[in-house]
């Protein structure tokens, strides 16, 4: 059974249909890439999954439970975290406060302490800057903070929205190695990216989204070789 199943999702902004009946699934332990151009609807799909937007039709099923109508704030405690586009760290709170906010749903202080330690181990930069305001971090550090914050909820699955956006090639590599680390520690990942090359390089399977429709899907490695994908998304 798929961990996350999106069925015939339709989302409107006013009268404009942004998502025109999208279906896909993510299995436990997989890294799934959702690639597509600007405005294809990638972010909209993630926002709909985590309840920030309500779809007009279709359903989102997470671990066998229909979460389409579940209010957004209840989804994270079911084990799904979301690293939003543009990082959206709490700029006027310290790095430490941001991480604590990520563990908002976690009641066990011991678990919070252990997760925090684990995150500091993997993101030593965050520990160095734990008392600094998040708004004063560099873009790469903010991305790490956003990822660390999502990990603080000890999720089973993470949705990542354009984690490489606006970062230098070196930092993009660092971010992707963190995604790999999450994957290795057993977290299922749905990755939305414009950087198709990096995303396909890390993913098991991929879906291509074009103006609200999925136009292609399949094995990520094969897709890297696909002529259409190459032309449209890899700039070859």
């Amino acid at each position: 059974m798929a961990m996350l199943e999106v069925k015939d999702l339709q989302v409107y902004y006013g009268l404009i249909q942004a998502i025109k009946g999208v279906s896909f699934e993510v299995n436990q332990g997989e890294v799934i890439a959702l690639i597509g151009a600007n405005g294809a609807g990638k972010t909209t799909i993630l926002h709909t999954i985590t309840g920030l937007i309500q779809p007009k039709a279709g359903s989102v099923i997470f671990e066998g439970k229909d979460i389409t109508k579940v209010p957004g704030h209840k989804i994270v405690s079911m084990g799904m975290a979301h690293v939003p586009e543009g990082r959206r760290v709490f700029a006027n709170l310290s790095v430490y406060q941001n991480l604590k906010m990520g563990a908002y749903i976690q009641k066990d202080k011991k678990v919070i302490g252990e997760t925090l330690e684990m995150i500091y181990k993997h993101f030593p930069r965050l520990e160095e800057r734990k008392n600094q305001l998040a708004g004063t971090l560099s873009g790469g550090e903010q991305q790490m903070l956003a990822m660390g914050r999502a990990l603080m909820s000890t999720p089973k699955m993470i949705l990542m929205d354009e984690p490489s956006m606006g970062l230098s090639p070196l930092l993009v590599k660092e971010v992707f190695s963190i995604i790999e680390y999450c994957h290795e520690s057993g977290i299922t990942i749905l990755l939305v990216e414009q950087n198709a090359k990096m995303a396909l390089g890390i993913a098991d399977r991929a879906y291509v989204l074009e103006t609200g429709n999925i136009t292609m899907s399949g094995n990520a490695a094969e897709m890297l070789e696909n002529e259409d994908v190459k032309k449209a998304y890899l700039g070859v």
Binding site: T50, G51, L52, P71, G72, H73, K74, V76, S77, A81, H82, P84, R88, V89, F90, M101, G102, Y104, I105, R149, S153
Partner: peptide, 9 residues
């Protein structure tokens, strides 16, 4: 939005 993603009502 980010607050809601943290599980805050």
């Amino acid at each position: 939005g980010a607050a809601s993603l943290m599980g805050i009502n």
